[in-house]
């Protein structure tokens, strides 16, 4: 399909980007463009204006603070997140999800925030960040605000962003002691592929008891979804294999997958149980290490 002709802006401050967005209501912001340009070329998205965020200095910062946790800037590349030493050390699952997104070329262009703002239900970076209780920093015409990531996704391609708002960063709190995370996704081709289904969890243990958990399922609903009843099954109880199995079955019941070119609803549903089981036991292991 034809790429429509568009104007291209590369503002150097967030404020400039926001006022450009205000003056050009049909404009889209672009980070790596690995979703946006493909939609323009292949999905009929006709844009008159693109506002690139890549010239805004400091927006690609990845910052880690012992107490405040991790902040990933809007233009930080998937490739950089995947190998950042602090992320590898303190947020291994966040790094793993970034490393498991797409391929080398796309990771060298694309961003974690772009992956979130694109709001695909299958976005590989969403489930882990959701499970870890991340929040997004938003800046817009009426100032700054912070939105928990689990309130950010509104539907396929839809987010809580208001007109002319930009996500400037995602913030991930530090894992509490005795906590572990895990993310597993499945796709039809090897490991490096768009996921047909994915599950992430964070588990906090007290001795053998699961003090808290958050479980999120990707590609099985209009947004990545939380499976609260599955969480209830394990929360506050000793995290046995048997209980983990039950949680898997429950997660599968809570997921609402559809059949599409990547997998059938039936297979996805079954896999939610398998993956939930696997991430819970992985996270349990990590939490007790």
């Amino acid at each position: 399909m034809r790429l429509s002709h568009f104007d291209y802006y590369a503002p150097t401050t967030v404020a400039d980007a926001i006022s450009l967005l205000q003056s050009k209501p049909d404009a889209h912001v672009m980070a790596g463009g690995t979703d946006l340009l493909i939609k323009m070329r292949h999905a009929g998205l006709k844009l008159k204006t693109i506002i690139s965020l890549k010239s805004i200095s400091g927006l690609n910062t990845i910052a880690f603070d012992e107490t405040k946790g991790l902040t990933i800037g809007a233009t930080a590349l998937l490739a950089d997140v995947a190998i950042h030493p602090d992320i590898l050390k303190y947020y291994p699952t966040v790094a793993q999800a970034a490393r498991g997104t797409a391929n080398v070329q796309v990771r060298n262009m694309g961003t974690v925030i772009g992956n979130l703002c694109n709001a695909s239900p299958a976005a590989d970076n969403a489930p882990t960040l959701l499970a870890m209780g991340a929040e997004v920093h938003i800046q817009g015409p009426s100032g700054k605000r912070t939105v928990p990531l689990d309130q950010f996704f509104k539907g396929p391609g839809m987010t809580a962003l208001e007109p002319a708002e930009i996500v400037t960063a995602v913030h991930v709190p530090r894992l509490t002691p005795h906590s572990g995370t895990a993310y597993i996704s499945l796709s039809a081709r090897g490991q490096l592929d768009c996921s047909a289904v994915g599950v992430a969890t964070m588990v906090t243990l007290k001795e053998k008891v699961c003090e808290d958990t958050r479980i999120f399922v990707g590609a099985c609903g209009p947004t990545p979804i939380r499976v609260p009843k599955a969480e209830t099954i394990v929360r506050g109880k000793e995290l046995t294999d048997d209980l983990i199995d039950q949680a898997g079955v429950q997660a599968s019941a809570e997921a609402t997958p559809i059949t599409d070119v990547r997998a059938s609803a039936d297979y996805r549903e079954k896999m939610v149980a398998v993956l939930t089981r696997r991430v819970l036991s992985q996270a349990r292991k990590r939490a007790s290490e």
Binding site: H42, N103, R189, G190, Q191, L192, D193, C194, V261, R262
Partner: peptide
């Protein structure tokens, strides 16, 4: 992936040709 004669997976993202790593 076909529906009533229409091919639905017309790109390499969804036409799952193995890549070098596979």
């Amino acid at each position: 992936v076909m529906e009533d004669g229409k091919t639905l997976n017309t790109n390499f993202l969804d036409y799952k040709m193995p890549n070098a790593m596979d």
